[in-house]
Amino acid sequence: MGLFHCPLGAPYYDDDACIDCGLCYAKTSEERVEASRKIREYMKAHAPRTSAVSKVAICGKGGSGKTTVVALLTLALKEAGRRVIVIDADESNPGLGRMLGIIGEPKPLSDLFNEDGLFSERERFYMDDIPPGFVSAVDGVRFMAVGKILDPFQGCACSLAESARQIVEKLELKEGEVLILDMEAGVESFGRGVERHADTILIVVEPSFESIMVAGRIAQMAQGMGIGRVGAILNKVAPDAMASRTTKELEKKDVKVLGILNYSPELAEAAFEGTPVKYGVAVTEAGTIVSALM
């Protein structure tokens, strides 16, 4: 263990980042095990936490209802007086714009970086700097999309994910603004570093074995990236004991449940018809989640 290999990134013993775990001067395997334990404990307790929730990524297994949850949280955050910016970072699946009541898809963000070379070189920008064609607004909610893979020969979604990453990293939020990202399904999108710049990860979980497994993995990976605030939202919960059983399973995986969205006939109807999500019980439930989060 060289000092340039310190797990906490301290370049030398007794640097500000050094916690005196003892790994660098351990002589026996017992000492190394003890040092390892101290590191784990420290990392768990000191995952960076920003004071305010500002950039929220919504993840989860495919079909768990990420897009619906994004729409509900958007309404709830608006109710709470926040100015919401929604980014659709799911490359393969249309629908979020429609759920929010957006008419006409905005130009894809991947074009923003392609067309205008200067934009990708900017270190920081604000919402006002983004040309109007890339933002669709309805009722004060601003909506952007990375673009969709429509052509089967367009290839890998990496360049789309790259523009999402740049936006999340470089967009400077003003007071009262909240950014919500609708992520791609599953754990694959974690590879592209989009979430690294988010301060909060919300995992949408439906009461199913697969969904719980995926949630556990996402939480583990988010912590590995140093994102401190990770929580689960239970979705499509039928009124029985499923909620408490799912919560228990998630707790075993160290994932905290922030709130529950019960199965709602209204939502199912909206999803079936493809109409915007309206105010209702589900939005009230989402409001509870928002206040737990803030």
């Binding site: 263990m1 060289g2 000092l3 340039f4 370049p11 030398y12 013993y13 007794d14 660098c24 001067y25």
Partner: peptide
Amino acid sequence: VFPTKKGPAMARTFLQLHDA
């Protein structure tokens, strides 16, 4: 030598010295 919390001090371990 490194600037530690106790003021300047020599490297503590072999690998610390090696890396630096």
